[in-house]
Each structure stands twice: as C-alpha cells, then as structure tokens.
C-alpha cells in the first residue's frame, strides 16, 4: 500500500475506534496523562507494526484494546500503582439535592473556569465526571466499570457539581 493509502486507513481506524479505546484506557489508568501516553503508543504501534507491514486487521477495536492491555500491564509492572480509593464513609447522609439547577448555572461559565476547578478535584471525582460527561455513561455503567456502588457514584457526582457551582460563585 502507498503511504497516502496507509494514512487514510489509519485515520479511518483512529476515528472509528477512538471513543471505545480511549474509554477503555482511561478507566484502566490512574491518571489522565498516563492514559494519553498509552493511547499514543497504541496508535503508533498500529501504524508501524500493522499497517506499514500490510497486516490485515478484521476487528480494529479489539486489536487495539489488546495492544492497550499489554501496554497497561507493562506500565504497571514498572510503575508503583497509586490506587484511587473512596474513603468517604458518610456518603449516604451526604447526597445533596438534585443538580439540574447547578448544571444550568454552570452553562454560563467558560470551559477554562470549569476545567480549572475540576483539575483541582480528587482523582475519583474527576473520573466520575469524565465518565458522565465525556463518555456519557449512566450511573449503573460507571458503578460497574469502577467497581463502586452506584449510590456512592451518585453522591460524589452531585457533590462535585455543587462544588463547581459554588466555586464559580453562581
């Protein structure tokens, strides 16, 4: 295959597989920066080890997730893993009110303002918000993926939304 054909195929595979592969890697890694590195390397390997060599790939998504699994396993062999734990025992009592009005208010803030607040949040809260808004997952899906009770996920989610609203003074 010529280079422009390889590039076109790569772009097509990237576009079609990115949502699922990025979601997979995101939930397996502790930090967003680490997810980014793994994702980059997964797609670079796709290009150099498969496409350039003319390898036929029937299920690109499964293929890429397999590469990601290997890279993640290697990463944690070398690095000391920091486990994001939920240490909040009072979640039952602390579920705040519904967040619709808070979400409405947040609409008026800028992305920079919102992201500045989110960046400072606990890793677990960040992950829940990303799962909800970036990957549009339901609470049951998030709970299952992260192996945390749904009620806890909801409590942390609602508290985070309120925190954003409060930090924006709106």
């Amino acid at each position: 295959m010529k280079k422009h054909e390889i590039d076109a195929l790569f772009n097509e595979i990237y576009r079609s597989t990115y949502p699922a592969v990025s979601r997979y890697v995101f939930f397996k890694m502790d930090k967003i920066d680490e997810s980014k590195d793994i994702l980059q390397n997964v797609y670079v390997d796709l290009y150099h080890d498969a496409l350039i060599k003319g390898k036929k790939i029937d299920e690109p998504e499964a293929y890429l997730i397999k590469i990601a699994q290997n890279k993640i396993a290697n990463h944690y062999k070398k690095a000391k893993r920091i486990v994001v734990q939920d240490t909040d025992e009072d979640w039952v009592q602390n579920i705040p009110e519904d967040s619709d009005s808070a979400l409405q208010a947040i609409q008026h803030a800028t992305s920079d303002e919102i992201w500045g607040i989110i960046e400072e949040m606990d890793e677990l809260d960040k992950k829940i918000l990303i799962a909800r808004f970036r990957y549009e997952m339901t609470f049951p899906e998030i709970a299952e993926t992260m192996a945390i009770k749904e009620e806890k996920i909801k409590a942390r989610y609602y508290r985070s939304i309120k925190k954003i609203q409060k930090s924006l003074n709106i």
Partner: peptide, 19 residues
C-alpha cells in the same frame, strides 16, 4: 452540547490533539 461535555472533550484526551 452542554458546557461540561465540551469542557471535558476539550481537556480530556482530546481526540484532535492526540491525533
């Protein structure tokens, strides 16, 4: 698209930037 969704798409594993 909600502001939160667009914020996350911009700042978290941004598809275009990563490409």
């Amino acid at each position: 698209m909600t502001k939160l969704k667009s914020t996350f798409e911009e700042n978290v594993l941004n598809q275009g930037e990563l490409l």
